[in-house]
Design a protein around this nucleic acid. Structure first.
Lengths: 219, 219
DNA sequence: TAAAGACCTGAATCATGATTCACTTCTTGC
DNA sequence: GCAAGAAGTGAATCATGATTCAGGTCTTTA
């Protein structure tokens, strides 16, 4: 005498949920997190605002998933490039850094949102996971390199984090300007940036001689 | 027949304004920007909320000044260290990086707020100025080094930005955890971090041989 | 087809915290 | 001491945008 969930309704539910996630992602990629109110997302998904809450317990929960998904996509690409067999440590780092930068510059608004735009604390947590993911990928490459004797021993997690930070910072400059002005980046400038970044990353990794820097700060 | 501003009242006005700025700075340094509502700042300064608006046109204006001031203080110290005469390029970079890190670790909540905590867009703009300041200091050192033939030519602004990003990222990990748990950082860990960071920065700068990395990413 | 239950709708409600403003209190110049 | 005007007060107001919910719609099973 009643209603019960069937494959059909279940599929519909999943599709509706997906629709909402994609709408939210689209909104963020197009105009940034700042523009992604529940109202805007609902309108874009073609549902009422209340419907969003049938699928997600809160705005934070929705955008945590959005960030997780977008970030994972990026991280997968970088991981794939950095994990290819038969490459030197430097080549692996260079490959990872290059796709990271290339993809960020190709999708500046999304990249800015994922990397640096002010967001809800709950979403910020997701962002930290994502950054840690990159760090771990680079750290693993460094560890391989050290084990293979290709590079000298270093504090892998720290150096890996430094690389991630370097990439993010260099890209966020252009990105935040780009986000403000909505202008496409100059392709020459982009290529120059990518080249500089890759060289920086490789240089930071490869150096062989012992640095003899005297520690100089007062306090 | 009237009132006119005198040195005495002017001084009082300036003092009141200063009181508010210091209260706001104290609040940020103690519990982060997230805790710094106008009400909290006013209470800390010992004035009514309305008084804050007699001295600042908006919350954003107040905190823009707070950030400007705190940032400038940090930047001055780094600049001083990085600009000392008679040091090699590597020593200057190392000195700047070391104070940056040391001061951030000594005041983690403030550092997190200045570097990475989500803030008002108007305040975010101030933050970008600040980061650009660091970048420019490092870039100037690099240019000196190149001119003197101490290091090979590089894209100075980009490499300098990468250094700033590396420092910030490595520090924000510990800082955001520290901000969450309010625990003081382990001093051993802090020293290790500083050492790793300084070595990273120097290595990224000093390397002499031409890197021969093949560019490998697909897209 | 009808009852039962899940889903959808979107206007109304809430929460938060910045901002205002009518009123009080202080300073000044005469 | 007093009128004029500046500064301070803090409760009330506003703005924004997330969240709720009473009522309508769609599906399913009998």
């Amino acid at each position: 005498m009643a209603y019960r969930s069937t494959p059909r309704t279940e599929a519909r539910r999943v599709a509706a949920r997906e629709q909402i996630v994609l709408a939210a992602l689209g909104q963020v990629a197009e105009d940034g997190y700042g523009s992604a109110s529940i109202g805007a997302v609902a309108a874009r998904a073609g549902v009422a605002t209340g419907t969003v809450y049938r699928h997600f317990s809160s705005k934070a929960a929705l955008f945590a998933e959005v960030f997780r998904r977008a970030s994972q996509r990026e991280l997968d690409v970088v991981t794939e490039l950095a994990d290819r067999r038969g490459l030197s440590t430097a080549e692996r780092i260079a490959g990872g850094a290059e796709v990271f930068a290339r993809r960020a510059l190709a999708n500046p608004v999304l990249a800015y949102a994922l990397l640096a735009e002010p967001v809800d604390p709950a979403v910020e947590a997701e962002r930290l996971v994502f950054r840690r993911g990159y760090r771990d990928v680079f750290a693993a490459v460094l560890e391989d390199g050290i084990r293979a004797g290709e590079i000298e021993p270093v504090d892998c997690p720290t150096v890996a984090a430094a690389l991630v930070g370097a990439l993010a910072e260099v890209l966020v400059g252009p990105l935040s300007e780009g986000a403000a002005s909505h202008r496409a980046a100059d392709p020459h400038r982009s290529e120059a940036l990518i080249t500089s970044l890759v060289q920086f990353a490789v240089k930071a990794i490869k150096h062989e001689e012992e640095p003899d820097v005297r520690r100089t700060a007062h306090a």
